[in-house]
Computed example of a mutant assay.
Amino acid sequence: MNSTTSTSVRIDAHQHYWTIQRSDYGWLKPEMTLLYQDFQPRDLEPLLARHGIAKTIVIQAAPSIEETEYLLDLATQHASIAGVIGWVDMLSSKAPETIARLAQHPKFRGIRPMLQDLPQDHWISAGKHQAPFDAAVEQLLEHDLVFEALVYTRHLDYLHVFAQRHPKLRIIIDHGAKPEIASATWTPWADKIAVLAKLPNVARKLSGLITEAGPRWSVDSLRPYVNHLMRHFGTNRLIWGSDWPILTTDTIYPKWLSASEMLLKDLNELERDAVFGDNANLFYRLNL
């Protein structure tokens, strides 16, 4: 899935926008002082311009169709947004119809069901869900959309079952599946990563790792995890993203970009271009 020539377009493939008064962000609390405020394109676009990031993928942050439509409205207004990953209740009988409707928007690129927040870790692979869930997946395939997985290590076995069941579905795992970098925990994360990497329809986001490392993060603390992802997924299935504004709880945008460039400095130009943009262009079908 790698390109043979550079698009020369850098893409931040994972960022969020929200407006507090919308009130459907159940996880966002007033005590989260750095994050409990509005974050809009006017806040991020100057950073993008300063650091040569041409486009972004904005990711849902609330489990509601209304938020997805709100993000699609923003995408219509702002050229910097190349695509939107929204949310759909995949167990609803209306899910196929909803996906088909959302897919009519030229910047709708897929869905993220926020697996990490669901009460059952095995939800994605449970047999009793298969019929309605698979009907929704068929619509993702019909419209050439992505399934984005927000998961922890404990979900990876179940995600493996799901990915094998749907080998034609492009699956992107957010934040490297959130390894426990702060405690330097290696297994079982590393072993499960290696197993999932054998499935060619699965890619990984190089994003959110500083959040998992915590305020004492360093390039050296991140390096083993990034190297492991590159070793097993290669540079043609790694996709860079910032996770802005969530990353602001532990660092600032240019520091994460600089750290990423240091972590990837041994790659050749085409490989770096792949991680920083070409892979997002291909996986999300952006046609940039």
Rank of each mutant, 00 (worst) to 15 (best):
residue 237 R to A: 08
residue 136 A to G: 04
residue 11 I to F: 01
residue 21 Q to V: 11
residue 86 G to R: 02
residue 167 P to T: 00
residue 175 H to D: 08
residue 56 T to G: 12
residue 252 I to V: 15
residue 191 D to E: 15
residue 102 L to W: 01
residue 180 E to T: 05
residue 55 K to Y: 01
residue 140 L to Y: 04
residue 104 Q to P: 05
residue 59 I to C: 11
residue 153 T to A: 11
residue 258 S to W: 07
residue 244 W to T: 12
residue 173 I to Q: 07
residue 129 H to V: 03
residue 211 T to F: 00
residue 151 V to T: 09
residue 131 A to C: 05
residue 128 K to W: 13
residue 38 D to A: 13
residue 263 L to W: 00
residue 179 P to F: 00
residue 46 P to A: 06
residue 166 H to G: 07
residue 46 P to T: 05
residue 6 S to L: 07
residue 248 T to C: 11
residue 112 R to K: 13
residue 120 Q to N: 14
residue 97 E to C: 01
residue 180 E to A: 06
residue 286 L to W: 03
residue 201 N to E: 01
residue 288 L to H: 12
residue 122 H to G: 04
residue 269 E to Q: 13
residue 164 Q to E: 14
residue 184 A to M: 02
residue 77 Q to N: 12
residue 217 W to P: 09
residue 225 Y to R: 10
residue 112 R to E: 07
residue 70 Y to T: 11
residue 223 R to K: 15
residue 41 P to G: 10
residue 235 T to W: 05
residue 92 S to P: 05
residue 182 A to R: 12
residue 81 I to Q: 05
residue 142 E to M: 08
residue 238 L to P: 04
residue 265 K to L: 04
residue 131 A to E: 14
residue 199 L to Y: 06
residue 246 I to N: 04
residue 24 D to K: 05
residue 59 I to R: 09
residue 109 R to H: 13
residue 255 K to S: 14
residue 66 E to W: 02
residue 179 P to L: 00
residue 257 L to Q: 13
residue 144 D to I: 02
residue 182 A to P: 04
residue 224 P to C: 07
residue 89 D to H: 10
residue 5 T to I: 08
residue 42 R to D: 13
residue 138 E to C: 09
residue 274 A to P: 11
residue 62 A to G: 14
residue 239 I to A: 09
residue 172 I to L: 14
residue 5 T to D: 09
residue 50 R to H: 08
residue 170 R to M: 02
residue 51 H to P: 00
residue 231 R to C: 10
residue 40 Q to C: 10
residue 89 D to C: 06
residue 73 D to W: 02
residue 58 V to P: 08
residue 36 Y to L: 10
residue 208 G to W: 00
residue 57 I to Y: 03
residue 93 S to T: 00
residue 68 T to G: 07
residue 243 D to L: 01
residue 281 N to D: 14
residue 219 V to Y: 04
residue 176 G to A: 11
residue 231 R to S: 15
residue 203 A to T: 03
residue 149 A to I: 00
residue 62 A to I: 02
residue 127 G to R: 09
residue 197 A to M: 04
residue 30 P to N: 11
residue 154 R to D: 12
residue 154 R to F: 03
residue 113 P to M: 01
residue 47 L to S: 08
residue 267 L to I: 03
residue 21 Q to R: 15
residue 33 T to D: 11
residue 276 F to C: 05
residue 19 T to P: 05
residue 254 P to D: 07
residue 133 F to C: 00
residue 26 G to L: 06
residue 132 P to S: 11
residue 132 P to F: 01
residue 91 L to C: 09
residue 43 D to L: 09
residue 125 S to R: 07
residue 41 P to C: 09
residue 255 K to D: 15
residue 119 P to K: 12
residue 26 G to D: 13
residue 87 W to G: 04
residue 16 H to V: 11
residue 216 R to W: 07
residue 129 H to E: 07
residue 89 D to Y: 02
residue 38 D to K: 13
residue 240 W to M: 03
residue 73 D to G: 10
residue 65 I to M: 04
residue 98 T to V: 12
residue 266 D to E: 15
residue 74 L to D: 09
residue 256 W to M: 14
residue 6 S to H: 02
residue 266 D to I: 01
residue 123 W to H: 13
residue 168 K to D: 12
residue 110 G to D: 02
residue 163 A to Y: 02
residue 174 D to N: 14
residue 154 R to W: 01
residue 171 I to Y: 03
residue 192 K to M: 05
residue 155 H to P: 06
residue 156 L to K: 03
residue 198 K to T: 14
residue 248 T to G: 08
residue 122 H to K: 13
residue 2 N to V: 02
residue 106 P to G: 10
residue 27 W to Q: 15
residue 48 L to M: 12
residue 41 P to K: 08
